[in-house]
Structures are given as structure tokens and as C-alpha cells.
């Protein structure tokens, strides 16, 4: 088939069929509440880091679920672990342990 160049550009697409879900699986295994998110955004609303930088815990959660993990290490390191997100989360997600396990997953990747 001839490629006319009209399909979604590689960088634009969330390539959910080919993305790597190892981090998503690792975090869900170690902290099952990672899956409970309904994307309400209260975590980001209350987040101290989110007011000073582009850090967005809701989005990080969503993107990991989509297998999108570019720049994740840099993003996740902005978290101060203060725990406000955990207090406001209506789903009762153990947000701090989600962050901790994302770090652990990344750490394991780096070690390999």
C-alpha cells in the first residue's frame, strides 16, 4: 500500500498496541490501588509541585496506563511525597506508594 504520509505521525500517536506496559504492570502488582483512578484531578489540584512545575500526578497515572513513559523519571522526581494527594483522593488510592513503585520500576530498569 502506498504511504501518502497522511497517517498519524509516530510521535503524535498514543501507540497503545505497541507500547511497553511493564511499568504499568509492575506498579499495579505492587500497589493495586493504582488501577482505581477515575481521573478527577484532585491530586493535581492540591499538589504543591504541580503549582510550581508541570508535574501532574493524574496525567502520569493515565499515561503509564497507556504505556507512555517518556520522561517519566524526570517527571516523577518532582514529587515531594507530602501526601496531600492521598488525603484528597476520593478513590482512596495509595498515591504515595504508586509514586514509590513507579520509582522502583524505573530504578530496576536503570539497573538492567
Amino acid at each position: 500500500m502506498k504511504d501518502w504520509g497522511y497517517s498519524i505521525l509516530k510521535g503524535r500517536q498514543i501507540d497503545i498496541e505497541n507500547n511497553d506496559f511493564s511499568i504499568s504492570r509492575f506498579v499495579a502488582q505492587h500497589e493495586p490501588s493504582f488501577k482505581w483512578c477515575i481521573g478527577c484531578g484532585s491530586c493535581t489540584a492540591t499538589c504543591s509541585a504541580a503549582r510550581l512545575t508541570g508535574f501532574n500526578p493524574r496525567k502520569i497515572n493515565l499515561l503509564i496506563h497507556r504505556g507512555e513513559t517518556t520522561n517519566l523519571a524526570e517527571e516523577i522526581s518532582k514529587c515531594m511525597l507530602c501526601g496531600k494527594c492521598q488525603l484528597v483522593c476520593p478513590r482512596g488510592i495509595n498515591t504515595r506508594n504508586v509514586i514509590q513503585n513507579i520509582k522502583r520500576a524505573l530504578n530496576n530498569c536503570h539497573a538492567l
Partner: peptide
């Protein structure tokens, strides 16, 4: 579309509301 995380009160009694525009 965003759940309000908290409400603060300003000096004049008006309210400051925080949310993420998701």
C-alpha cells in the same frame, strides 16, 4: 471537569477554590 481539592478563605471572606482543569 475537575474535582475541587480544597477551598481556602481570603481576607475579605471570599473563597479560593483549587481544582485541576483535567
Amino acid at each position: 471537569r475537575g474535582r475541587v481539592s480544597e477551598i481556602g478563605e481570603n481576607m475579605d471572606g471570599t473563597l479560593q477554590l483549587k481544582a485541576e482543569d483535567t
